[in-house]
Write a protein that binds this DNA or RNA. Structure first.
Length: 329
DNA sequence: AATCCCTCCAACCGCAGCATA
DNA sequence: TTATGCTGCGGTTGGAGGGAT
């Protein structure tokens, strides 16, 4: 909190009067509240002047929006609100005002503070929760699915956190969306890999066999680096199998206001070469993580653009997201 | 009781976008 | 076209308060 600034030495208003900064006194709150209820919102510099406040318009606006507005909801965030914030953040990134617009009675500042203090920490703790299934990563990548210690809700939150942590800034998303989409990256892989999954959730995917030559040709065409641990492939493998899980994500385009729906497959690509082709890669297991791969969509995130929706239309009914078990008024 | 440390959150700051002169 | 003012947004700051030592 900031101490009230009674000196006013840093700012003066149009009349040369000293402007206060820092915490608002109850008297100032009363003045602003009464003025706003009587006159409604106008030019904020006029509000400050006409309400008899020695504050700048900007300060008045902030005080009204974040504290005095009658429609503000007080108190802690409900679990439903928390889940919605996490989900919206996975879609919108740090656009707090847009998130706040979808949580009636909550302000962008409140949500931002809540995110930075509570949610980040909670999700970080979740992400470090050990899972008994992580040892068998080929069948349950990350240990997220099935029989783990995490509840379904925690799994949802975890999955969403992974989305948002890899796309925490809008600029990152913009970069992800600005990439050329004339080539369908999914063509890298066998069509049988296509599957659907609820947003933010993981599904076990069947193991898929694919044509190694197709894989290799596309692999080379896309730059020959799939974010593989170790060296890039330098020769086509003899066999390729893909195991993993699928996840559906929604990305908003800051320019067009559209939503792009991507099916992401958290893949484990296992390839095998016989020793006379390439000893280096003989029976080598490669783990390809999709987390963080959006900065470079060749890095193992197998994406397929399913279609574009208008963001506003989609967000009108947030409960349409399948993993949310509540309805937004 | 005193001090330290951490968390929370109200408020500020700088910037971008827009309207208007 | 440029300057100016206003609004809104996101990042950051810093003080109050509470728990730990």
């Amino acid at each position: 909190m900031r101490k009230p600034d009674f000196s006013g030495k840093n700012n003066v208003n149009n009349n040369g009067a000293k402007l206060r900064k820092g915490l608002w006194s109850p008297e100032e709150d009363d003045k602003l509240m009464n003025y706003m209820l009587t006159n409604g919102q106008g030019c904020w510099s006029d509000v400050a002047r006409n309400a008899g406040l020695q504050r700048c318009g900007k300060s008045c606006r902030l005080r009204w929006i974040n504290y005095l507005r009658p429609d503000l909801k007080r108190g802690a965030f409900s679990p439903q609100e928390e889940e919605l914030i996490i989900h919206l953040h996975s879609i919108l990134g740090n656009r707090w005002s847009q998130i706040a617009a979808r949580l009636p009675g909550r302000t962008d500042n409140e949500i931002k503070n809540f995110w930075n203090s509570t949610v980040k920490k909670r999700l970080k703790n979740l992400s470090s929760t050990p899972s008994p299934n992580t040892s068998d990563s080929s069948s349950d990548p990350g240990g997220l699915v099935g029989g783990g210690l995490m509840s379904m809700r925690e799994q949802n939150i975890m999955a969403l956190y992974m989305d948002s942590s890899s796309l925490s800034s809008s600029s990152t998303k913009a970069r992800a969306l600005n990439r050329p989409m004339d080539i369908d990256p999914l063509s890298m892989f066998d069509n049988s890999l296509t599957m659907s999954a609820p947003s933010g959730s993981y599904l076990n995917a069947p193991q898929v066999e694919m044509n190694p030559n197709t894989f290799y040709e596309n692999y080379r065409m896309f730059g020959g680096n799939i974010g593989v641990e170790g060296e890039p492939l330098d020769l086509p493998p003899e066999s390729i199998s893909i195991e993993g899980c699928a996840k559906t994500e929604y990305f908003s385009d800051t320019n067009t206001n559209n939503i792009t729906v991507n099916t992401m497959n958290n893949l484990f690509i296992k390839y095998c070469n016989s020793s006379n082709i390439n000893d280096n890669h003989n029976n080598k297991n490669i783990k390809v993580e999709n987390i963080g791969g959006l900065n470079n969509y060749f890095e193992g995130d197998d994406q397929r653009v399913l279609g574009d929706w208008n963001l506003e239309e989609l967000m009108k009914d947030v409960s349409s997201f399948p993993f949310l078990d509540f309805h937004v008024e």
